[in-house]
């Protein structure tokens, strides 16, 4: 597979330059500019959402953070637990990195990012240890290993360190949700194939009421161990990526037809 690790190019913040020059203009002009800026911001948020959830998904396209992705997604519950933990760390670290971006010397930015991420991971780990002990135990070493998840440091380096707090946190949220969704889909596939259940052990994460969530999809005499073991994760991941690429190809195939129709529009002139 070709490496699609092109990170999102930072949206140019030339709107700031636009504001400074606009002071000379009339109030009307100013309002129009502000509207334009709002529109641009909206567009950027939309772009961030699309990038994080689909086009540049950390799990499917960037293929970052594969270690936890493949190791702990044997059940939906584990996947959800790790996905939420990663999401939280990603949002917090992106916000913090963005907040201190003006005071971080360029030469030592990576160690500083790692320290920030490690601090949040420690918080999350302690929280999970306190409130969801069962899932804390089943995630094991992969919870502290979120520190080394390249998806997180990648976002800090590529986006958060160059953009304002709001956008950076939103980017973290979208990337985190994208990652968590891949984890959950993979977890669901593996759990259905391996054990024939869904949300098995959800009470470990969500409290005792969640044991009613457990769905027995079908009864198995013997577990399909391949789906539960890491090789099954690799194979299932390959299928998910193939599906994503197939959908993309399908969308791309449909695209030109629409533009062709636009060109072929007939212009009618009424002489009278």
């Amino acid at each position: 597979m070709t490496n699609n690790n092109e990170l999102v190019s930072t949206p140019e913040s030339n709107s700031e330059a636009g504001i400074e020059s606009s002071t000379e203009h009339s109030a009307e002009n100013n309002a129009a500019l502000q509207l334009e800026k709002k529109m641009a911001l909206k567009k950027e948020y939309k772009e961030l959402a699309i990038q994080g959830l689909w086009k540049n998904n950390p799990g499917l396209v960037q293929l970052l953070g594969l270690c936890p992705l493949l190791a702990v997604t044997a059940t939906v519950t584990n996947a959800l637990g790790l996905g939420l933990a990663t999401l939280l760390v990603l949002v917090c670290s992106n916000a913090t990195v963005s907040a201190i971006r003006h005071w971080v010397p360029k030469e030592i930015r990576i160690p500083i990012f790692v320290l920030i991420i490690a601090a949040f991971v420690t918080c999350v780990q302690l929280l999970m240890n306190a409130y969801t002990f069962g899932i804390y135990q089943s995630l094991g070493i992969f919870l502290p290993l979120i520190v080394t998840n390249c998806a997180i440091i990648g976002r800090a380096e590529a986006y958060a360190s160059k953009n304002p707090i709001k956008q950076a946190s939103f980017d973290g949220l979208m990337m985190g949700i994208g990652f968590a969704l891949v984890l959950i889909v993979l977890g669901a596939i593996r759990e259905i194939l391996g054990q024939g259940t869904l949300f098995d052990g959800a009470n470990l994460l969500l409290g005792d009421w969640a044991s009613v969530l457990r769905i027995e999809v079908y009864q198995l005499d013997s577990q399909f161990l391949l789906a539960i073991l890491p090789p099954g994760a690799f194979i299932a991941m390959g299928f998910i990526i193939a599906l994503k690429n197939a959908i993309d190809a399908n969308i791309k195939q449909r695209q030109p037809k629409i533009t062709e129709q636009a060109i072929e529009r007939v212009r009618v002139n009424f002489e009278s």
Binding site: S222, F224, L225, L226, A227, L229, P231
Partner: peptide, 10 residues
């Protein structure tokens, strides 16, 4: 090998 790893009993 896949079968042996997945279904050791059978």
């Amino acid at each position: 090998v896949m079968l042996l790893i997945s279904f050791p009993v059978q």
